[in-house]
Simulated scan of single mutants.
Amino acid sequence: MTASPSRADEIRASSILPARREDVELHTADGLTLVGELALPAHRDPVATLVTLHPLPTHGGFMDSHVLKKASYRLPATADLAVLRFNLRGVTSPRGTSQGAFDGGVGERYDVAAAIELAEFHEDPPLPRRWLVGWSFGTDLTLMYGLDPSIEGAILLSPPLRYSRPEHLAAWADSGKPLLALVPEHDDYLRPDEARERFSVVPQARVVGVDGAKHLWVGEPYVRRVLDEIVAQVNPTALPLPTTWPAAEQRHEPSPTVRA
């Protein structure tokens, strides 16, 4: 008798798909220990790696900011990606509290370097083809401190261009490394037309305006659009991403109050 196929359920905002998940610690050059998590494909080595940098801590940003958390919950299974998330200095999440205190984008340079170093030298398994994925404040950190030889390129979600300066964009232009900016139509800080003008100094930058979206990317359609664009840049052979997954392989978490 042929076994009936397992039921597939829609991937929802609360879905957690199979992955190997390990708590990690990052050690900065100025002596701090930061806490994080590395999510890996469940049964194979990753084909590429996302090193994520979260939104502004003073406005609620942390390693569990929802788009980054959903990337870690889905992309190891659906796109064979490794996803590194961590709390910047002084930031708390259920994973724990990173040492230090918010430094307005100055001391955070060491946090970015520590994350890149962990990804570069992780051995079991190796973490190949490393990309930075910054969101809001995390995009400024990416532009200011992310031009490391071990980084292939960067993806910017809702870049405000608040802390970064023209010289940082000029350095990315000179590097030739890919730069993708996803800019919400109704962003609070930088909207698509202005973003295209300001990123025009980086010839290889691609600015994608997302109709209807806001700075926090609230709503499952916008989360899926972000994840689709990330995968299109990093591992396009995985597209289209599935919208369902075997029910027996999904876990779910309670829907939290939206925080950046």
Rank of each mutant, 00 (worst) to 15 (best):
L88F: 15
R89L: 06
R89S: 09
G90K: 11
V91R: 10
S93C: 12
S93Y: 11
P94M: 11
G96Q: 07
S98M: 05
S98V: 08
S98W: 02
Q99F: 00
Q99A: 14
Q99W: 02
G100W: 02
G100Y: 03
A101D: 13
F102N: 13
F102H: 15
G104R: 10
G107W: 02
E108K: 10
R109G: 14
V112G: 05
A113I: 02
A113G: 04
A115F: 02
I116R: 00
I116K: 00
L118A: 01
L118G: 08
A119M: 08
A119R: 11
F121Q: 14
F121D: 14
D124F: 09
D124L: 12
D124G: 12
P126G: 09
L127Q: 07
L127G: 01
P128M: 07
R129M: 01
R129T: 02
R130K: 14
R130T: 03
L132P: 10
G134C: 09
G134V: 06
W135E: 14
F137Y: 15
G138C: 08
T139C: 14
T139F: 07
D140H: 05
L141E: 08
T142G: 02
T142S: 13
M144R: 15
M144Y: 00
G146L: 04
L147P: 04
D148K: 00
P149N: 04
P149G: 02
P149V: 01
I151V: 15
E152K: 03
E152T: 06
G153M: 05
I155D: 01
L156E: 05
L157H: 08
L157Y: 08
S158N: 09
P159M: 07
P159H: 06
L161T: 07
R162C: 06
S164W: 02
R165D: 09
P166S: 11
E167I: 09
H168N: 13
H168C: 10
A170N: 08
A171R: 14
W172A: 10
A173E: 01
S175G: 07
G176N: 02
G176Q: 02
P178T: 01
A181I: 09
A181H: 03
V183C: 05
P184Q: 09
H186L: 14
D187L: 08
D188A: 15
Y189P: 00
Y189H: 12
L190I: 13
L190S: 04
R191W: 01
R191C: 06
P192H: 04
P192S: 08
D193I: 10
D193N: 11
E194G: 00
A195P: 08
E197D: 13
R198K: 15
F199Q: 02
S200W: 03
V201M: 12
Q204C: 10
A205S: 11
R206L: 08
V207Y: 03
V207N: 03
V208Y: 01
V208W: 00
G209A: 10
G209E: 03
G212W: 06
G212Y: 09
A213M: 11
